[in-house]
Design a protein around this nucleic acid. Structure first.
Length: 699
RNA sequence: GCGCGCGUAGCUCAGCUGGUUAGAGUGCGUCGUUGACAUCGACGAGGUCCCCUGUUCGAAUCAGGGCGCGCGCACCA
């Protein structure tokens, strides 16, 4: 027996070399797999954001996807797990801005090209760092096919999609009310906002003959009309008339319009229309051809249209306006406990300002319709299944997608302007065109990831590996990413990009709270692998992780699975010691041992069933339990007395069965704990292939 | 306001289509092991399966209601 077994299993000593041997074998690449691997099986890796180190969320998806891929590889599929990295536009720019702040610098005023180059260098450094961490977690992905969202061939495909959408009338550039972050100086899509309930004062202001209610008196300088409901008997005679009164900074003249948007029951039934700073008012303004007067600038300060209030921040101006209205007797009353919702930036949690800016939008209805049809017909299976409902609900209530961001870090929107003319393309058609400076929402490119990474439409990989089989990711990004991949995949290729969506549970800290820097409860997966070994971490992330729920991760749990890895090691040691290096030589099993083996095979059948049905947490637990509490505690214990006895036939049979059962369990456990099983495999007396490409015990 | 999920041993969680004394890991107690196991083994204590009503021969599991927690969506100024 190999002397290595005399020590406990040491992950540190083994893991790096084992990973290197896998990588060197070339079997991560489906093209190099032996001939029995015929049918393609593809998983596209959710590309981690290349702006920091891996967190537990990454560790979960790596573990589960690697588990799926290793299992399918052993079952004889031509498995491709395609890794990638995301430039993660806004996310990365925010991270980099924080770094700049620490250095006492700011992105504003910087040469955009220089800023872009700096972030690129930052991203590429993080990218290679992150790739090594993926290796450390045991990811058996095909590095030769790795893609980055800013690779030229990816950008080309993204541009083709944009062009096609333009030709099909699915994109448009238009002035609309958008969500503007005054810190980050960019617009955001609906998904990048969080809405928060707030209690604020509701101010009842006198407007000439009317009294009207508002939470934002400071926007009054941008009013361009007064609106009432046309059915409202109190006011309908006013419609079409112009009211005049003395405001805070001079005389005010406003037209009264009638619009169904106004709710007679709310407040006084009279609304001031401020198109520049309220999305609903903007819609009203469009219906009535009202002018749009901006009074709040991009930094959230009142501009020079606001007289003495110019330069004040919104909150400050609100208070001051209220005080001055009071003084002038124009404030009828204030309701203090008005409950309403405000939208905030999901990154800095500042209140977003609605602003009217020209932006690029994607029309969603034509994209959602086919997606809804496929999902309704069950062409995509969701784990857990209730996400089907959630997805349909979202798709049915979607708004057009703002894809332009006013940041440098991203794929530039390929557009040019000359007067009223717009040209789509990377190059200007001739002289005198002005280039678009906005970049795409990062999800516009990652939403095309499955077919873009495979080289749609002509690459042989696309033909062989698309559609992919499973999309495994976090439930949190189902709308950001999964929904868009479905829509854009259908749009470009006419096929669903995958037919299974598996959404793993979010990993929380022990107290079931989300891990976050501010809570200080972050556990680094890399620290855990260093301490307890990757196999232990993987088991800890698989067992107890049911799709769609949260899973608490804590150190004792991982420690327990380190013991399990060591248990496997010692079980193997015992078996090899007592079988005298016999390997799988011929011989016959007696009745009792035949039965033992049969029982194991029955369990492996169950495990296979669980794997096929995405019940990884059950499969892992069953294998764990069998090895420890049946194989080790019962069978090995009983074998001790057989080996000490005089029945040579029984000894021969037992040797053979233990060895065979060990091999079976190593195979079945490999996808879960690849390192320790491969380490043991390499120490077997017979010369063998890598365990990684052995056949799964059940057909 | 609408929607989704969760509530099972001290802690973290399983329990798939309802079926014998409700499970695992961890923690706790007792005893034993140091020639597979920087340990491990055996045994044990510990649960009104949130509450109520119902369906059923039978419910932690299904239906209705309630309480508690978490999350998503939502333009009423």
């Amino acid at each position: 027996m190999n002397g290595k077994f005399l020590k406990p299993y040491d992950p540190k000593e083994n893991e790096e070399a084992i990973y290197a041997s896998w990588e060197k074998s070339g079997y991560f690449n489906p093209d190099n797999l032996p001939a029995r691997h015929k049918k393609p099986f593809t998983v596209i890796m959710p590309p981690p954001n290349a702006n920091g180190s891996l967190h537990t969320g990454h560790a979960v998806f790596v573990t589960i996807e690697d588990l799926i891929i290793r299992y399918k590889r052993m079952r004889g599929y031509k498995t491709l797990w395609l890794p990638g990295a995301d430039h993660a536009g806004f996310e990365t720019q925010v991270v980099y801005e924080k770094q700049l702040e620490k250095e006492g610098r700011t992105r504003f005023g910087m040469d955009p090209m220089k800023l872009r180059d700096e972030i690129l260098a930052f991203t590429l450094a993080n990218k290679s760092f992150m790739e090594n961490q993926l290796r450390q977690l045991g990811a058996s992905c095909d590095w030769s096919r790795e893609k980055f969202t800013l690779d030229r061939e990816i950008i080309d495909i993204v541009y083709q999609t944009f062009k096609k959408m333009n030709d099909d009338g699915l994109v448009y550039r238009s002035q609309k009310s958008i969500n503007w972050c005054t810190k980050h100086q960019t617009s955001l899509s609906e998904l990048e906002t969080i809405s928060e309930e707030r209690i604020d004062p509701l101010y009842y202001m006198k407007y000439g003959p009317f009294v009207l209610a508002t939470v934002r008196p400071e926007t009054k300088f941008g009013d361009t009309a007064i609106a009432v409901n046309p059915k409202d008997k109190r006011y309908k005679n006013w419609i079409g008339k112009v009211i005049e009164f003395e405001g805070l900074i001079g005389p005010v003249k406003l037209k009264v319009i009638g619009d169904d948007y106004v709710d007679q029951e709310f407040g006084t039934g009279v609304v001031k229309i401020t198109p520049a700073h309220d999305p609903n008012d903007f819609l009203v303004a469009q219906r009535h051809n009202l002018p749009v007067v901006e009074v709040i600038d991009q930094y959230g300060k009142l501009n020079d249209r606001c007289g003495k209030y110019a330069g004040m921040k919104v909150e400050e101006a609100r208070k001051q306006v209220a005080i001055d209205l009071e003084k002038k007797g124009m404030l009828e009353k204030v309701e203090q406990n008005y409950k309403h919702a405000v939208k905030k930036c999901y990154k800095c949690e500042r209140i977003l300002e609605p602003r009217i800016l020209p932006q690029w939008f994607v029309k969603m209805k034509p994209l959602t319709e086919p997606a809804i049809k496929y999902i309704k017909n069950g062409k995509i299976v969701f784990y857990p299944e209730h996400y089907k409902k959630i997805m349909l609900h979202w798709l049915n209530n979607i708004e057009d997608w703002n894809v332009s961001r006013q940041i440098v870090w991203g794929i530039p929107i390929p557009a040019w302007y000359k007067g009223n003319k717009i040209h789509i393309g990377e190059e200007a058609p001739d002289d005198g065109w002005k280039k678009e400076t906005d970049t795409f929402d990062t999800w516009f490119s990652s939403g095309q990831w499955p077919f873009a990474t495979l080289g749609y439409p002509n690459h042989s990989d696309y033909k062989k590996f698309y559609p992919t089989q499973v999309m495994e990711t976090a439930g949190e990004i189902i709308f950001f990413w999964v929904a868009r991949m479905i829509m854009l995949g259908l749009y470009r290729t006419g096929k669903l990009p995958f037919n299974v969506v598996y959404l793993h549970g979010i990993v929380t800290a022990r107290d079931s709270k989300k891990m976050s820097k501010s809570r200080g409860n972050i556990i680094s997966p890399i620290v855990l692998t260093d301490k307890y070994g990757t196999d232990a971490l993987r088991m800890g992330l698989i067992i107890g992780n049911t799709p769609g729920t949260t899973t608490a991760l804590y150190e004792e749990k991982i420690k327990a699975y380190k013991h399990f890895a060591n248990k496997i090691w010692n079980v193997a040691r015992f078996v090899l010691e007592n079988t005298n290096g016999m390997g799988s030589k011929k011989g016959t099993l007696d009745k009792k041992d035949t039965k033992l083996k049969k029982e194991l095979m029955a369990l492996l059948k169950e495990v296979t069933d669980d794997m096929e049905n995405f019940r990884f947490y059950l499969a892992g637990e069953k294998l764990y339990h069998y090895l420890w509490h049946t194989f080790a505690d019962k069978i090995l214990e009983e074998s001790k007395s057989i080996f000490q006895g005089n029945d040579d036939k029984a000894k021969m049979s037992r040797r053979k069965v233990l060895y065979e059962m060990l091999l079976l369990q190593l195979k079945a456990l490999h996808p879960f704990v690849p390192f320790v099983t491969e380490a043991i495999w390499s120490l077997l007396p017979e010369k063998k292939n890598l365990l990684m490409i052995e056949e799964w015990p059940i057909k």
